[in-house]
Design a protein around this nucleic acid. Sequence first.
DNA 1: TAGTAATTCAAACAATTGTTTAATACACTC
DNA 2: GAGTGTATTAAACAATTGTTTGAATTACTA
Lengths: 225, 225
Amino acid sequence: MKQESAKERILLAAGPIFASKGFEKTTVREICSAADVNVASINYHFGDKKELYTQALILARQLREEQVPFPAWTDDVTPDEKLRGFIALLLQRIVVMQTEPWEIRLLLREVMHPTDAARPLIENYFRPFLDRLMSIVDEILEHRLPDHQRHQIGFSIIGQCMHYRVSGEMISMMISEDEYQNCFEIQNLADHIWRFSLGGLRGIRESIVDSQLSASDRLSNQVPS
Amino acid sequence: MKQESAKERILLAAGPIFASKGFEKTTVREICSAADVNVASINYHFGDKKELYTQALILARQLREEQVPFPAWTDDVTPDEKLRGFIALLLQRIVVMQTEPWEIRLLLREVMHPTDAARPLIENYFRPFLDRLMSIVDEILEHRLPDHQRHQIGFSIIGQCMHYRVSGEMISMMISEDEYQNCFEIQNLADHIWRFSLGGLRGIRESIVDSQLSASDRLSNQVPS
DNA sequence: TAGTAATTCAAACAATTGTTTAATACACTC
DNA sequence: GAGTGTATTAAACAATTGTTTGAATTACTA
């Protein structure tokens, strides 16, 4: 009298396993063991392993169709504080990712190995991050830069965060375990990246002011020689 | 009358294959076929597949050291210029995709998914690289921060560069092809990352000055109540 | 040149993989 | 309740993996 059919149990068991180990390293026997079904069941119900993976991907997408919303900031939150919140959120959701549900992790895995035509999915997930970030940058700079500069700034901030995901293992090997435990927690990292990026932004803002000044110099305020 | 011994041919053949497919997906038979040796040769000369991988990594590092030595800066180069040079060098080493030598791909693979073979790599290759960057940072700040902060700064700069390598695909999805062609050349990126990082460093330097001031306030300049 | 050590080779080995099979158990209809 | 189609099972299968074996060949030395 099991609530879920064998097919459902396989699908539900496969998702998290695929999400954490990927397609290649996941064995059908492991899935069947987790789903408590016979080894032949995958082939009986899904045809083959690949089709099961596809179904798991589809299921993940259905379950996560709606975008995960960003926190809504009230009006009294300063742009600087928003940036701090954004960086912490990015670190939390994409870098650590343990807190993310398996559906997201599975989809993200697909993102990292861009073999399939899952392009729109990628856009849907990452585009809001970048857009949101750039609008915060606009606020901080009190100025909307040309797109390519906005993008470069966005990638500078995202890149700092992503590095802890992409090279996280290497980083943990390069510094002492003690330092890693104490100084590379999410909040520590968010603080540093926040400060570093605020500095970078301020430098850019000042260079804007300079260029504007020099531009107005050239235009209307020629210094008499 | 072959110039290269079987052992050498195996090593030379293994490098590019490991680099393009990774350790798991590379089969010993493929390597042996490429090296034109018997299947048993790997085990005879190297013991097992894993040791061959380690040797290939070591070779990659040696070749890379010879190919791209670090520039020796003269005394009149300012720390800021050194940072600019460092960033450009890093970008040049890791971002260029086409005509990219297998040594880089193999090394970067190890960065993202380190195996046991990564330990000596870190000590001999990556650590000195990070140290170099951090010493430049020390010069710019005219102050040696605690290690964890030096590391975080180093990772912030390296992370910005790495992002264009690791997420290059996603980046090209986020921006128009036109913008990508015109504004994301290596020199453009180096300029931006350089400026952004200089700003970040300046922010940190000022926070040092502030904390030193407030520290001296507390220590020797107590305000009479 | 004879002999010994090092190397190469085809073949087999053991383990793991995804998949198939054929018998059995179950569920449902008439 | 017999019959029929579906579902489950243990076992085997075929393919691939890294590795080992033992004989054959080569290279080197005394």
